[in-house]
């Protein structure tokens, strides 16, 4: 028994070590860092307790970043999953050249984020961009709109680019889930009298409920932590209109070397994600809903 105990510790050690060094050390380090005031001109850390949190949360900037992060995450996750789901439903039908169609749909997802961002920057370009030249030739506008430089359109433009890159991933996972739905159950519902939408609601969606939950949580975390597309498209601008936690943290830490403040933002973003994780657990528990006799 004793030997087994030691053996299990030995087998666990590499994983614990890896997680400890690469995950928990930086995470705990960040939390500690957030209690110190450090910057480029003041390289000796001074312990300030929660003072930094007071300063950061006292500024309108922080609440703007939080609001932006929520808008960004909710919009991207919702659009990506809804579009992904319907693309998956389409791909699940018998199509001509099915393999080719599936491969083409998946293409945006395999592109690196930076490449996608550069591509969309061209699309949004006020003078040369495809979108503007289309709008002008269609007579909808007389001169090019600076999609990424206008405070009112920048967020929407960045969201669109992220959804374009992200929906194939959701589609792929939903397609796999749809293919695992029991065909007999769908046929039984057909004979029981259910139309296509009713079958989707009563048979298909309940069958893939857990996949939807996992997919939404996964894309929420990935989107919340998204950096490359936003950074390359707008750097969080104009005037902070697209600043989300990762871009703000990067800008504060490596742009202005205000490490303490960057760490404070980092801890706040962990807090938001922890909330999401809690909601996920609650949603999963809600699965055992009340039983009805009919």
């Amino acid at each position: 028994m004793l030997r087994d105990r030691w053996m299990s510790f030995a087998f666990l050690a590499p994983a614990v070590l890896l997680l400890g060094v690469f995950l928990y050390y930086p995470m705990i380090g960040t939390v500690i860092e957030s209690f110190y005031s450090t910057s480029f001109i003041n390289p000796n850390p001074a312990f300030v307790g929660f003072k930094q949190y007071e300063t950061v949360m006292g500024k309108a900037e922080f609440w703007q970043v939080l609001a932006n992060s929520l808008v960004w995450t909710v919009c991207v996750v919702a659009l990506q999953n809804v579009i992904g789901f319907f693309v998956a439903v389409l791909l699940n039908q018998a199509l001509p050249a099915q393999g080719l169609v599936r491969a083409v749909v998946l293409l945006p997802w395999v592109l690196p984020g930076v490449v996608v961002a550069i591509l969309w920057r061209f699309m949004y370009d006020p003078q040369l961009g495809l979108i503007n030249s289309f709008l002008i030739s269609a007579g909808l506008t007389t001169e090019g709109i600076a999609w990424l430089a206008d405070k009112t359109t920048a967020m929407g433009a960045v969201i669109l680019a992220a959804v374009w890159k992200g929906f194939p991933f959701s589609a792929l996972i939903y397609l796999a889930a749809l293919q695992s739905v029991d065909r007999e159950q769908i046929e039984a519902a057909t004979i029981d009298g259910a139309g296509a939408l009713r079958r989707l609601r009563d048979v298909v969606l309940p069958a893939i409920r857990n996949v939807i939950l996992v997919n939404v949580v996964l894309t929420t975390i990935l989107t919340f932590n998204y950096f490359d597309i936003v950074w390359v498209l707008t750097r969080g601008g104009p005037q902070g209109a697209t600043d989300i936690f990762p871009t703000k943290i990067y800008e504060l830490g490596f742009g202005q070397f205000r490490f303490g403040e960057a760490a404070t933002y980092g801890v706040a973003s962990i807090g938001v994600l922890a909330l999401v994780a809690a909601l996920y657990v609650l949603a999963q528990r809600a699965g055992s809903r009340r039983r009805r006799p009919v």
Binding site: D182, Q185, A189, P206, R292
Partner: peptide, 17 residues
């Protein structure tokens, strides 16, 4: 009405449903 080989019951519904 049809009875299927694997019964094709809806797993998330109660027997009554």
């Amino acid at each position: 009405a049809m009875v299927f080989q694997n019964y094709a019951l809806y797993p998330h519904m109660t027997v009554g449903e």
